[in-house]
Structures are given as structure tokens and as C-alpha cells.
Amino acid sequence: MNLNYWPEIKDYLPVIVVLISAVIAFVSNNRHKDLDRFYKNAEENLYNLIEPMFFKIDKIEKINDKRHKIEAIRNYFNTYNPEKINISKLGNRELIDKFLDSHKAFHQYLTEIDDESLKTLFRKIGSLRFSLDKEYWKLFETIYKDHNWFKKTVGMNYLFRLFLRISVFIESTLYAVTWILFVCIGTLFIYANGPGSPINVDDLNQELKDLLAIFLIALSTLYMTMAINLMVTNDAKQKKTFSDYATAGVTYLWKKASLKLRELKREKEIRKEERESAEILEENDETERR
């Protein structure tokens, strides 16, 4: 900075400080208002629309009898009719599209009443249920993300609570830092050892070693803070883990496979009954001819 201009800048320093403070206050106030509006809309969407829609369609998905399932779908769309309720309160364009697709598939089935339109309807209902499930848990995690944290730390000594807050901050920061370092290491490694690399790569290899050392230190610190946070405030983030999604996926595939096996078994029994009926008719015809 050229100090020759400092006397002139010093005269305007109070104005500059006021302008910067005003900008910070304006941005902070707008952000606070946006967050308040977001949480208000999220709670209204979750409690009044998404939660009842999700649990009702989840109940429909568990119905095996086709006739009862179709009747339940009819009642579902009578309750959640786009002409009677504000579907826009779902707050998610993809979710709205899937709801409208399911509604359209239901009316398509009522018009045609065939197996193909019925399969399409059930597929659309399953897709809508999946999207409602995802949206429900996202809003739940957003609204209640700090619920377990305060529940487990409200009676804790304030120094320990401060230490845990710092530990959570370090975990979140190092999570991003380790990924950035990982990408940088991979990029530098490809540049130093890949085709078209510079002739003298000693400096690059040294930088690569330094980045790798920093990455290992950051990663070990990240795992340490994760272990502390997990031990003291388990499930504080209220998020589904990978094992939860894997279990749900396996369960879904198992149900689909079981249903398919039952359908194949039933078709086999029907074909057997038809063959037996045909054989009985042939025997009766031969008896009559004799």
C-alpha cells in the first residue's frame, strides 16, 4: 500500500467504517429474515402437508391386495386433490412433478382400467413415496438438527460444552479441508507423473510429499474429533447414515423379490389348474364319445 495516500484515506476512514458496518448489518439482517422465513415455511410444509402425505402413502405401499390398494389410492387423491389444496406448499419442484404424474396415472387407470395402466400407477405411487420419504427426512433433519445436541449438553459444564462446540467446528472444517487436499494431491500427482509432465519434477514431488503430510495430519485430527463428537453426542445431527440407506435398499429389494416370487408361484398354480381342467374336459369328451 502506498503510504503517500494515507493522510487522505484517514480523513474518510469514519465514512468507510460506517459504510462497511451498514453493508454488514444489511447482509446480516437479510440473512436472518431469510432464515426465519425458511424455517417457518419448512415447519408448515412438514407438519401440515408432507408428513401426513408421506405416512398415508407409506401405508398404501404396504397393501398387497390390488382392489384395496386402488381404493386407498382413490381416497388419497380425494384428500390431496390439486384443485382443493395448495400443492405448491410442497416446496419442491421435483416432488410436485411426481405428485402430478401420480395423479395423472391414477386418472389414466380409471379411463383405461387395464394391467398396463395399473402397473404404471403403482410404479408412480412408489416413486412418489420415495420422494416424500426423502423430503420428509430432509426437513426433519433441518428443523431438529440441534435438538439432540441441546438435549445432551444443556446440563453440561459450560467449559465442556464450549470444548465440544469447538470440536464440532473443527470436524466440519477439516471435513472440507481433507477433501480439498485430496483433490489437490490427486491433481498434482497426475501433473507430476502423467503424460506431458515437466522434465524437472523434484520440486513438484516435494510439494506432493508436503501436501500428503498435511493431509494425513488433517485426516487423523478429523477422525479424532469425529470419535469425540460421536462418543459424547451420538446421533446429534439426526441424519440417516449409510447403513440406514443400505438397510432400506436391501429391505426394498427383498420385498420386491418376495412379491415377484409370490406372483410367479400364483401364476404357476393357475397354469396347473388350467391344465388339470383341460385334462378333465378331454377325459369327459372321450367318455361321451365312447
Rank of each mutant, 00 (worst) to 15 (best):
N2K: 13
N4G: 03
E8V: 09
K10L: 08
P14L: 09
I16G: 02
V17W: 14
S21Q: 07
A22H: 06
A25F: 09
V27D: 02
D34V: 12
D36N: 15
R37C: 10
A42Y: 06
E51S: 09
M53I: 04
F55S: 04
K56A: 09
I57G: 04
D58Q: 11
K59A: 15
E61D: 15
I63P: 05
I63C: 14
A72N: 02
I73Y: 06
T79Q: 15
Y80F: 15
N81G: 03
E83P: 00
I87E: 13
I87T: 13
K89Q: 13
K89C: 08
L90I: 11
G91H: 14
R93C: 03
L95W: 10
L95N: 02
I96H: 11
D97F: 14
F99N: 10
F99C: 03
A105D: 08
Y109I: 10
E112F: 15
I113R: 15
I113M: 15
D114W: 14
D115G: 10
S117F: 13
K119I: 10
K119E: 12
T120Q: 07
L121N: 04
L121I: 03
I125F: 08
G126I: 00
E135D: 06
E135T: 08
Y136F: 12
W137R: 07
K138W: 00
L139F: 00
E141R: 08
D146W: 08
H147I: 02
W149P: 01
K151H: 10
G155K: 11
M156G: 03
M156P: 14
M156L: 14
Y158M: 15
L159R: 11
F163W: 07
L164R: 01
V168M: 08
E171S: 02
E171H: 05
E171A: 02
S172R: 06
L174R: 06
L174I: 05
L174Y: 03
V177F: 13
V183G: 06
I190E: 12
G194L: 03
S197V: 01
N200E: 14
D203P: 01
L204Q: 15
N205V: 07
E207Q: 15
E207F: 12
K209Q: 11
K209W: 13
L219T: 05
S220I: 09
L222N: 07
L222D: 06
M224D: 05
T225K: 13
A227C: 02
A227M: 10
I228A: 07
N229G: 04
V232W: 13
V232H: 03
T233L: 05
A236K: 06
K237Q: 04
K239G: 00
K240T: 00
K240G: 01
F242H: 02
S243N: 03
Y245I: 01
T247P: 02
A248P: 07
V250L: 15
V250D: 05
T251F: 11
T251M: 12
T251C: 09
W254N: 10
K255V: 06
K255Q: 12
R262A: 04
K265C: 07
R266L: 08
I270Q: 07
K272S: 07
E273P: 04
E274S: 03
E276A: 14
E282W: 02
D285E: 04
D285A: 13
E286A: 08
T287H: 14
E288Q: 10
R289K: 13
